[in-house]
Design a protein around this nucleic acid. Sequence first.
DNA 1: CGACCGATCCTC
DNA 2: AGGATCGGTCGT
Length: 200
Amino acid sequence: MVSQKALPRKFYEQRPLVVTKKLLGKNIVRRVEGGVMIARIVETEAYIGPRDKASHAYDNRKTKRTLVQWSKRGCAYVFKIYGRNHCFCVVIGRRHVPAVALIRAVEPLQGLELMAKNRHVRSTVNLTNGPSKLAQALRITSELNATDLCRRGDLFIAEGEEPIGRIVSSARIGIDYAREYRSVPWRFCVPDSIFVSKRQ
DNA sequence: CGACCGATCCTC
DNA sequence: AGGATCGGTCGT
């Protein structure tokens, strides 16, 4: 039986890289009409503004899109990318310091049928093995931007099983333009998960 | 107001 | 390897 108690604010108030790493193994709980979906986080990345050139909040770019990055830790930052895809992040920066953890991959635990319906794919691994794939599977869109994940609502994160083995860290994916921040090891994943992006 | 482009995914 | 697809962002 998996816990459905939201992680406390205190969890998100640790140092950004600590939170990003500790999110591995935690469970995303998503309630929609038709049921509950639960998925275990297996891959994350940290974006730590304002100096991080890969971050949307680089150089303190505070816009309508990025504003949530300055809100309370433990809130959701959901953005749309390439016109059709969404990505799901968690705010983890101290007050006045924008920072988020991007959820890059999860393992489905409950509600696989719902996820498959949302994704229109057959294979289980293809359900949630990428940031926009999991957002689509869990039906996470811009409407959920700024959701407080510390409340037990339609979207929150709960305690899960500790990852077994050593956490792998590496450079982040898809941010080659970020100059000297291109190679910082701010990507974390559990070892041996088939849902983790190829490339480590 | 126009131009550019992306923390991706899918198909070829 | 290339196209989809559109709102955010920035320069004029």
